Simulated assay, not measured.
Amino acid sequence: MKVKAKDIAKAAGVSTTAVSLVLNGKDSRISEATKEKILRISREMAFQSEITVQPGGSQRVKTLGLVLPDLKDPVFYKLLIYIQEYAFQKGYMVFFCACGDDAERCCTIVEGLVVKNVDGLAVVAPSTLEKDDSLTKTLHTIQDNGVPLVLLDRAVYSIFSDFVTTDNKYGGRAAAEKLVQAGAKQIGCILGPAQVYTTKKRYQGFQEGVALIKAHYREQDVFHGSFTEESGRTAFETLYAQGCDGFFVENDMMAKGVLAAAKEKGIHIGENCKFAVYDYEGTENVISVRQNLSLMAEKAVDRLIERIEEPEKLMPAGNFYITPLVEN
């Protein structure tokens, strides 16, 4: 039976990440004693490392790992396309996986990509992530062992790495201001899970925007759901029944359900009800907050490559906030 890295990790009492780093000869903070233990056990178990080579040559192909919550959301699919294209231009291939918005599965995928010896990782954390869960611990281990890591879109509690996202607070502020300018009197917020970074920041921006223009909203007009059409539909029906005539929708998938429910009620989009939505691709008359996904992709790839190709360069973790485009 073929011996795998996880078999060596179990025998040595270490993580699969540590085994991968040692067997692939990567610089890390693993002690010499642990390295020797891993190498000794790998020899005893007759482990054969998987090495990728370029056709006709001995140089390993340069690779990046990318983990996304899912590909059903057009935002994540576009992000994948932009990252693949830009990375290829820079001489890197991208291995990507979708975790089904599940934190445990995301953890398994991240460990698997490291075992496959990717040179760097970009991760969009699932919305189900909780503080100090196994994924957070795995990301800490990866960082401690020197694997370049960029978090995309959503920050992860206690992980201090390079972080690339849209300016979520700016988008929330602009949405609130545009809705009031359009004539909305009672604004409802349709948001994702409260613990998600983007949800928190977009809501904070919305609150700042409302305060800035001295408008008013009610706490009972804030609906937290999941990033799905069904959740958007439920949110709209709830808030519309409470008298809301303006809606800030922070997610494109939720927006599909919101607008479908509004049409079923005979509501004229943009006339008797106003809508400000993130990343919506439809043709309805809405206020659109569009993330600059291509620029986010380029910044993430550039940062990873810089850390991969200049490991001796001391760079503090950077936060990069890309301003979204707000359109009527």
Rank of each mutant, 00 (worst) to 15 (best):
D73W: 02
Y157R: 10
G183Y: 05
G91I: 09
L149Y: 05
T234K: 14
G25S: 06
I322F: 08
L121Q: 03
P193R: 09
A297D: 06
L191T: 12
A260V: 13
D7N: 07
G112S: 14
F247W: 10
L113M: 15
D119R: 06
D27F: 05
F223T: 10
M254P: 10
K214L: 02
T17H: 02
E111P: 08
S127Q: 12
A12C: 09
G56P: 05
E237Q: 15
Q54N: 13
N285E: 14
F88D: 12
T283G: 07
V118I: 13
T136L: 03
T323S: 13
A125L: 04
A211I: 03
T128Q: 03
D162T: 12
Y170V: 07
G205C: 05
D153S: 09
I142P: 01
A125I: 05
G13F: 02
G270E: 06
P148L: 03
R218A: 12
E250L: 11
D153F: 04
D119S: 15
A194C: 08
L66H: 02
F275L: 10
S20F: 01
L152H: 07
L23Q: 06
C97S: 15
I308F: 01
K62Y: 01
D252M: 14
L295N: 09
Q186C: 12
G100M: 09
G282K: 08
G57Y: 01
F88S: 14
N24M: 02
V94F: 03
F95P: 00
L21K: 15
I83A: 04
A184I: 04
A241E: 15
E306I: 01
D70K: 07
N285P: 02
N168G: 13
F236V: 11
Q48D: 04
M315W: 08
R154E: 06
E208C: 00
K274V: 00
A12L: 03
E309H: 00
G282W: 05
G246Y: 08
H224E: 06
N168F: 11
A235S: 11
Y86F: 09
M93C: 07
G246V: 11
G172M: 11
G192N: 08
P74K: 10
D279H: 03
Y321T: 08
G120D: 07
K131V: 09
Q54W: 00
T283Y: 10
Q89W: 02
Q143D: 00
D7P: 01
N285S: 14
V156Q: 03
E219S: 12
A261H: 06
A317H: 04
L39E: 13
V222D: 03
L68Q: 01
M254A: 14
I159S: 05
V124R: 03
E32S: 11
E32C: 06
Y321P: 11
V277S: 13
F96V: 10
T138C: 02
Y321L: 15
R43S: 08
V156N: 00
K263W: 10
Y157W: 11
R303G: 02
E281A: 07
N117E: 12
L149A: 06
I51T: 14
H268C: 12
R40K: 14
T323F: 11
L239C: 12
L139F: 07
S49T: 01
K90T: 07
G270Q: 09
K214P: 02
R154H: 05
